[in-house]
């Protein structure tokens, strides 16, 4: 399975330039418009979604699943590798975003944000990354790459219009850490449920 993860990350790195540019530009821009973790919360899932959709787009474009399924790897491991890649990509994007955020704050481009708000941001971005990343893999597996664009747009509209609600409610509250833990559990649940159903669908696929 790790060989398949390595392959996914290799494809991601080959196409990571767009994400780096997006990261460098988006963090200070979010800093100008707001001084909370909303920008970070959106930047990480967008980057995760972009990376996952590029990997999957490659698979679809070149019908690479045909090659992958002729290699000595089980269908179960192929799907597990896709989901493991989502998690690793999320981690990479989170580290890079935090480094960029802190870097800009140290340079005085934007103000420092309290640590507990960073934790809230990371947990929210985890939930959104899992919905976006794992959701993308599930949608492609079930309906094909064509439907992913519709899914991406609808989800983005929902998130953009509702993200401020938890941020507003929790901004001055005393329950940020507890709420963050619940959000992370929700993210993990989304991840494992979508993984389970994607494995089921992938087993029945014909190439």
């Amino acid at each position: 399975m790790n060989k398949a993860v390595k392959r996914n990350l290799y494809i991601m790195i080959k196409n990571y330039f767009f994400n780096i540019v997006f990261l460098i530009l988006s963090v200070p821009l979010w800093g100008i418009t707001s001084n909370n973790i909303g920008g970070m919360t959106l930047t990480i899932p967008i980057m995760t979604y972009t990376s996952i959709s590029i990997i999957e787009q490659y698979e679809e474009l070149y019908n690479y699943d045909c090659i992958l399924n002729s290699l000595p790897i089980s269908r179960y491991d192929i799907v597990k590798s896709k989901f493991k890649s989502i998690f690793i990509i999320y981690l990479i994007n989170t580290v890079l975003t935090l480094v960029t955020e802190l870097g800009y704050s140290m340079l005085g481009v934007k103000e420092f944000i309290p640590a507990n708000m960073y934790i809230l941001g990371i947990s929210l971005s985890f939930l959104l990354s899992m919905i976006y990343g794992a959701g993308a893999v599930f949608i492609i597996c079930k309906f094909g790459y064509g439907k992913l664009k519709t899914f991406g747009i609808i989800l983005m509209l929902i998130i953009m219009s509702t993200l401020s609600i938890p941020l507003y409610i929790l901004h001055n509250g005393n329950y940020i850490l507890q709420a963050s833990a619940i959000i992370i559990i929700l993210g993990a649940a989304v991840y494992f449920i979508l993984q389970k159903y994607t494995i089921k669908i992938y087993y029945e696929k014909e190439f």
């Binding site: 494809i11 490659y58 070149y62 019908n63 690479y64 045909c66 090659i67 002729s70």
Partner: peptide, 12 residues
């Protein structure tokens, strides 16, 4: 097994 396809499915 070595498998050779009738079409190219490699990353172009």
């Amino acid at each position: 097994i070595g498998f050779v396809y009738d079409e190219s499915n490699y990353y172009e």
